[in-house]
Design a protein around this nucleic acid. Structure first.
Lengths: 190, 190, 190, 190
DNA sequence: GATGAATGAGTTTTCATTCAT
DNA sequence: GATGAATGAAAACTCATTCAT
């Protein structure tokens, strides 16, 4: 059913990201998406069952892309501390370079739709995380605690900082980035 | 001029908190609030100029209450490390004990309304934080970096953890709480 | 029942005239009148039975004032042509000098309220007109036709002109006024 | 883009004219129009951007129709006096035969919407008038004064008379019509 | 595959009015 | 005499979705 017309599909996705990051999820209506994409509202229902279906599909796509970037170029043979810092820098650089992707995902995570994300989606992401943090624990670098706590201290402070930077209430510089990465490391290291 | 009838005012606030935490901010309409509060929609406009006015008033009230709790019982003469851990535990306990307050504030922070919070509100909160973290820096306990980074590493991991606990994807126990408080401390300490 | 408090009554009337001439009859609500008059909406219902009652009372008051001015200083012994021109000039001067009175009356005349003006109101005005135009006919100056046609050609072109002047689409000068008065005279004279 | 379905469009226009002439512009709501037209309120927004857009579109359509009728069958080679009287009679007959059109246009002219009529609309109408009255001046029949004064004395007395006739306070007969046409001529002729 | 047209249910807000104090 | 509080009804408008073509 999918892939009827890749171009039209992408223009729907693009219009949705644009709107959600500009006017917010709650102000993003199907008709506005259609207008922005230059198509009829009803065409959206050729590609998606409902507005919810569209938003979730887009979320899954973006979240997956975002998470894959984290472990890009991470080598199991490198020293773990170096790997950890690279992975976190990867993540920060990605969300800074792709503000719309990041802001869309964040809006979504803090919305009523969040509950409806298919569980399998999580498992794929969690698998990658688990592999990485288990390695750190096995090699004796990381605290032997629930991995989710390690994940939280790795990603959320950075995410909050970047959000404030996008909002204009924080200033970004190389030094601050290094501080954040260091602090996360100090929180999770054994 | 406000506070015409304290009881009715509170029933409006209660209905609003209930709805926002149950169905989400974007699904919370004035008519639903009125129905839940057992009054007419138009009565809400006797108490508030607009839906936005209602939401912001409620947010300011709750956020203030929440922030005041953090430094409750914190004594300047105590050892700073002890003070820090007490303050963070205060905060965590408050949001665990008042899930609706916490979830309302979070929804609001991640919504388009966030931009419309009166600035003075921020300054009051920031003042308390600044005083506390500057003390920690002066006494040589905290990293000499931008205070906002210290705040972020103190509150956001805990908040994310509690959110996941409320969602049902995390399990809460004393040990985990201690882990979180420790990790935050290790992130911010000199 | 009337004359409870002359001052308050007048502030209601003033607020009403102001609003109707500024935002239009249909945008003039009881609560806006109250706000402008600095009183409570419910106080208006102490003075008037309904919004309609208020508007009609004000209309009757203003219309009467406006019509009385027309024959101010008109002397039965003067030459009729002179009287006619004086009366028309009186009228034009009055509506130019009292734009709010004129615009309120005009808005009202072109509204659904117009149907509800008490008939006795008309008879008083018509009596004055009849007396004047009958004199003109008796003295052989005016066409022996239905008086209402004479009234129409006397007042409506001038009113339309002044309306356009207030709107900004016409420019007022002494010469044009003389043209209007002349043309009306040529239309009604025998 | 407009004129999706001529029949439905006309039923919207018809319902609007009916309502405005029966209950007045300010009492004419979108939902009443929809009910009368036998469609859903929201359908009206398929055809028009707003209530204002609907009303202005209708006004422009009707006013244009009305103005075109005036100079119908007027021949430049006829004697000007004859042309003038024909044109005025044309106008009077049209508004008598089309009371709803006339009353709608009048309500609109005396409403807050009046300010929002697109300017081009005026220029088309004014062009026709100018051509006609300039001819009358050039041929020595009309006063050499501002054309707008000639227009006012030609149309407004007749309009006021017909309004009163529709209201029931005037009686229409052939003789009165001739009086009106004569009086207008005497007002404007050199 | 695409869309124009249509709609019921909903939105926020204002209205004229009432009534207990 | 005056008013704060309350409200049912209505306003203009938007929504996600459907369906015939």
């Amino acid at each position: 059913m999918r892939y009827k017309n890749k171009e039209k599909l992408n223009s729907i996705f693009d219009a949705t990201i644009d709107l959600v990051t500009k006017v917010g999820l709650s102000e993003t209506s199907v008709s506005k998406i259609a207008r922005k994409a230059g198509i009829s509202s009803s065409t959206i229902y050729v590609y998606f069952e409902s507005k919810e279906d569209l938003l979730i599909s887009l979320y899954v796509k973006l979240k997956e892309k975002m998470m894959l970037k984290i472990y890009d170029g991470i080598n199991e043979n490198d020293n773990f501390k170096k790997s950890y810092k690279s992975a976190l820098l990867n993540f920060i650089n990605y969300i800074i370079d792709n503000p719309k992707v990041f802001l869309f995902v964040e809006q979504f995570n803090n919305s009523p739709f969040e509950k409806k994300i298919p569980k399998e989606e999580y498992s794929k992401i969690i698998y990658n995380h688990n592999k990485f943090y288990q390695r750190g624990q096995k090699e004796g670098y990381l605290k032997n605690i629930e991995i989710n706590l390690l994940i939280i201290f790795t990603h959320y402070p950075a995410m909050q900082f970047v959000k404030e930077y996008f909002k204009g209430s924080e200033i970004l510089n190389e030094q601050k980035l290094q501080h954040i990465i260091n602090m996360s490391w100090e929180a999770v290291k054994k």
